[in-house]
């Protein structure tokens, strides 16, 4: 239970084991469940059932077309011998550790620039958000080859300055890099969240600080940064979760193969291939639960660490 307390990051309420709730507390509890009602119903009907089913399936041999057969821990043990799975974990970790920080820094920097204080901001914001609109559309697959292909835009530009390019997408050593670029380039979503967060900081703080003659840097470190920490934290947690589950971009750019040479084979892409390509849905489910454990561990660490750097007003 204490781990859960840590995880939620919400304040621990000290309560005696058998202490009776006061009438006011009981009323608040009732109100709470009313507010939570839609979510609880959704959890019971739509979410938990399939999650539990996938947990059950992870202990079975299930090919989607025939009833699952209980095989115990076989799927989990198999992961230890599956070198492609281990490779996909490596690819995924590398991707998470490189692209999440880069994307968040880009998003925060642009949110600060595009927050206020100049003309044409809404125009710039829209332009900078555009790549994120395209998301995982098929068009990206074609576009990325036009940019990073052997005869693509990058190589054409390099040729102008006399450098011979390479097949950025086709070479196993650079293919993952192009996906990281793609991810950083679609920083629109965290940027928007940062923008919204910046707008929630009361202007009176800045007015007061300006009155005191605080420099802009000073204002950033003493007002903006601390008050934005809940939002930075949110972006960090969710971007990590999202990056571990990255699928669409690799799927679209590599045509679902994770190629070249498995260099863009993200964990979820491999999971998808196992589940839908090879009809090993039992194994895919086991992989999904391994991923859940990994993501939960990272989220847990994040929440623990947040105690030291995230400031709430409650």
């Amino acid at each position: 239970m204490s781990a859960l307390n840590e995880m939620s990051g919400l304040k621990k309420e000290p309560r005696g084991k058998k202490r009776k709730l006061t009438a006011a507390e009981r009323k608040e509890e009732l109100v709470s469940y009313l507010f939570l009602a839609p979510w609880l119903v959704g959890l019971a009907i739509i979410t938990i059932g399939p999650m539990a089913a996938s947990l059950y399936l992870s202990f079975t041999d299930y090919n989607l077309l025939q009833p699952p057969e209980w095989t115990g821990l076989d799927n989990y043990l198999r992961m230890f011998e599956d070198t492609r799975l281990q490779n996909s974990l490596g690819v995924t970790f590398l991707y998470v550790f490189v692209s999440v920080p880069l994307q968040l820094i880009a998003a925060l920097a642009l949110a600060l620039i595009l927050d206020r204080g100049m003309r044409g901001l809404s125009f710039y914001r829209s332009v900078y958000y555009l790549p994120s609109l395209l998301g995982g559309s098929v068009a990206i697959a074609v576009l990325w080859r036009q940019i990073f292909g052997t005869s693509g835009l990058i190589n054409q530009l390099l040729a102008l300055v006399g450098i011979e390019g390479m097949g950025w997408i086709a070479d196993p050593s650079t293919a993952l890099g192009t996906l990281m670029v793609l991810n950083v380039w679609t920083f629109g979503a965290p940027m928007v969240i940062f923008l919204a967060g910046l707008r929630q900081i009361p202007t009176m703080y800045y007015e007061a600080a300006a009155m005191d003659g605080a420099s802009k840097v000073r204002q950033f470190t003493t007002i903006t940064a601390p008050l934005l920490t809940p939002i930075i934290f949110f972006n960090l947690v969710l971007q990590i979760i999202g990056a571990f589950q990255s699928f669409t971009q690799a799927f679209v750019v590599s045509g679902g193969t994770g190629g070249p040479a498995d260099s863009t084979m993200f964990f979820t892409l491999y999971l998808y291939q196992q589940g839908f390509g090879n009809f090993n849905m039992g194994y895919a489910s086991a992989m999904a639960w391994l991923l859940l454990l990994i993501i939960a561990a990272f989220t847990f660490i994040n929440f623990i660490a947040s105690k030291w750097w995230v400031f709430y007003d409650d």
Binding site: R145, G149, T150, M166, G167, A170, D171, V253, S254, G255
Partner: peptide
């Protein structure tokens, strides 16, 4: 074609 061109084409468009 080069190995790179071969791999690029393998993405299935």
């Amino acid at each position: 074609v080069s190995a790179a061109q071969f791999t690029e084409a393998a993405a299935g468009t």
